[in-house]
């Protein structure tokens, strides 16, 4: 392999204190065509980033010295918009909410499926534009007449407040921060609910119906949420940063 091919490769920094995960993930991602560097905790990651940079970071949350949360906060405070995928804990709703709030581009619950991680990495890379903050860095997002105030957990349609359940707000937030992306029911369940029961697909459908009803969004001619039959949903409205 000549140097030029190596240079063209996408650089991924894996940050995890668990050597077994770090090493196996590194070799897996290398085989998928990425160039991989590793760091053992947040501090190590920041040092390595300042030296070599990265196109995307896969960041574990629970680590000694400096955890993933603090690392992400420091990056974003320094207006470093390198895409970050957080590895969170299953079932911890607070941790998942935090992941998007603090400007992660996406997150995956541990133990995650490796194919899902690679798919997420590719989607995030496709979505992000170099040097641009991700949608998750904005506290207010808009799409047409819809405004989502992420920090206040409130949504408005033509300036009129919508009375969503907290779960529906989180679901809408996830869809709006991943616009134009087909998101499967399984992925929504994992990301928003943190569980994957067989009956979960119905739980997702019920919440989508709740959102659509309040947005007066016609599923056959959607302005906001499109159903991809047999697969999942896609936010089709154009999303803009309001703050």
């Amino acid at each position: 392999m000549d140097d030029q091919t190596v240079d063209k490769k996408i650089n991924i920094l894996i940050v995890d204190d668990e050597a077994l995960i770090r090493d196996n993930l590194a070799s897996l991602l290398e085989r998928s065509g990425f160039k991989v560097a590793v760091a053992v905790d947040g501090q190590d990651a920041l040092t390595k980033l300042s030296h070599t940079g990265a196109d995307l970071i896969v960041l574990d949350v629970i680590m000694p010295r400096m955890d993933g949360r603090e690392t992400l906060r420091q990056l974003r405070q320094n207006r470093n918009w390198v895409p970050v995928i957080l590895l969170t804990q299953v079932g911890d709703a607070a941790e998942r909410a935090m992941a998007l709030e603090e400007g992660a581009d996406d997150y995956l619950n541990k133990p995650f499926d490796t194919h899902e991680l690679i798919a997420r990495i590719k989607t995030v890379l496709r979505r992000t534009q170099a040097g641009q903050p991700p949608l998750t860095a904005s506290q207010r997002l808009g799409s047409g007449e819809l405004v989502l105030d992420r920090s206040a957990r409130r949504a408005f349609l033509s300036d009129k407040e919508l009375t969503f359940t907290p779960k529906a707000v989180t679901l809408l937030e996830y869809l709006m921060t991943h616009p134009d992306e087909l998101i499967t029911r399984e992925r929504l369940l994992d990301a928003v609910w943190g569980w994957d029961y067989p009956v979960g697909g119905r739980a997702v459908d019920t919440r989508i119906a709740e959102i659509r009803k309040l947005l007066a969004d016609d599923p056959s001619q959607p302005r906001y949420i499109e159903t991809v039959p047999g697969q999942g949903y896609r936010f089709v409205g154009e999303v803009v940063r309001l703050v």
Binding site: V90, G91, D92, A93, P111, T165, P166, W195
Partner: peptide, 22 residues
């Protein structure tokens, strides 16, 4: 094994988490 760990975690969370009531 993941299923067992995930389910146990779910039970632990559920005993303390706030219900989203409607």
């Amino acid at each position: 094994m993941s299923r067992i760990v995930t389910d146990l975690r779910k039970i632990a969370d559920l005993s303390t988490q706030k219900l989203e009531e409607s």
